[in-house]
């Protein structure tokens, strides 16, 4: 086992564009759940709407990529309205079930063969992202940054992804320190109390759903540009639950929580995977084969989720007094 390579691989997760995509989704979920208290179990759908919106915008509507991204975000807003207007009046646990069901319905619709001319069916879509690299201002070449060597395209993708993460974090910070954010936190604590003070709770929840959804939509866009394809099987419920784990790890009602949570999550995941695989390779884990070692990662995700919720619901950065789950 090459410890240095293991470390290197793990640390590269810190700045992987996929990590940035998950972080964006988690920032969105922090607006939903951390600040407004909405139990959204369909975050995968918001990301998927963003991803498919962009891909379909380019491939079917023949839009330029930037316009397609705009179209994708518009789709996210429409999705949030369709989902939110009828459901935001429901009890919290019903909202959880409706959002998870809606996300699955969206996924089925994307993978059904009936619409495959537009959605690509179960094969998904690809070849929509070339234009992204034509914007690349980074000169051609290999960039050696100590630990990693990246091509100009890899540098550009990471630059964009993490700029979006930074921008989103600043936006959330601006929103949440304002009186608007105060209303959101009030709704998280007790929506009837906020209603009794003359605030249109329903409208605020809808705004929260839209804004958090837009961050997730951006996350979906980054995800599929990094993967250079969009497939329906990505947006399963496990995707949503990983975002929850990321968010709860860092702290749901914090600005830096989703970022630190995302980075830590993927570094730890890769680190344990590589270590276990290394142990297996030198014969210390005779009862496991290579794919099984990869499967252990999911067991760790599940365990992390359980332990976090029970023992540290406020996350690493959260203030215990600031976030508690309202049963």
């Amino acid at each position: 086992m090459d410890l240095l390579l293991t470390l290197n691989l793990s640390i590269s997760e810190l700045v992987s564009p996929l990590t940035a995509a998950y972080i964006l989704c988690a920032i969105g979920l922090s607006v939903h759940f951390g600040y407004t208290g909405l139990l959204n179990f369909g975050q995968a759908a918001f990301a998927a709407v963003g991803a498919y919106g962009m891909a379909i915008g380019v491939l079917t509507l023949k839009l330029p990529l930037l316009a397609a991204m705009g179209f994708a975000l518009l789709c996210v807003v429409v999705f949030a309205l369709i989902l939110g207007i009828p459901t935001l009046r429901l009890r919290a646990d019903y909202l959880a079930i409706v959002t998870i069901a809606s996300a699955e319905v969206f996924r089925y619709l994307m993978s059904t063969s009936g619409f495959s001319e537009v959605t690509g069916g179960s094969n998904g879509l690809s070849q929509f992202g070339y234009e992204f690299y034509t914007w690349n201002p980074v000169p051609k070449g290999q960039y050696n940054l100590g630990l990693f060597t990246w091509t100009e395209e890899e540098v550009w993708l990471r630059l964009v992804a993490f700029s979006l993460v930074a921008l989103s974090a600043v936006l959330v910070w601006l929103m949440m320190r304002s009186p608007w954010g105060r209303v959101m936190k009030g709704i998280r604590e007790d929506e009837d109390a906020v209603r009794s003070l003359g605030k249109n709770v329903f409208w605020y929840k809808l705004q929260s759903l839209i804004i958090g959804g837009l961050f997730a939509g951006l996350g979906g866009i980054i995800f599929v540009i990094a993967m250079s394809n969009v497939q329906p099987s990505t947006w399963v419920t496990t995707f949503t639950f990983m975002i929850w784990t990321v968010l709860l790890l860092g702290g749901a009602a914090t600005i830096l929580g989703p970022i630190a949570g995302g980075m830590l999550f993927f570094v730890l995941l890769t680190l344990t995977n590589e270590l276990l695989d290394g142990l297996r390779a030198i014969g210390w884990l005779p009862f496991l084969d290579q794919p099984q070692v990869a499967q252990i990662r999911f067991i760790l995700i599940g365990l992390a989720l359980m332990l976090l919720v029970v023992f540290r619901p406020q996350g690493i950065f959260g203030n215990k007094k600031e976030l508690r789950f309202n049963a």
Binding site: G186, D192, A193, R195, S196, L197, G198
Partner: peptide
Amino acid sequence: SYKVARRGMIRTFQLTKSLNAM
């Protein structure tokens, strides 16, 4: 309810609804 409150009819609750994490 929120419009009622905006018109100047404000209520409190039997089970106090202070916003505890604020």
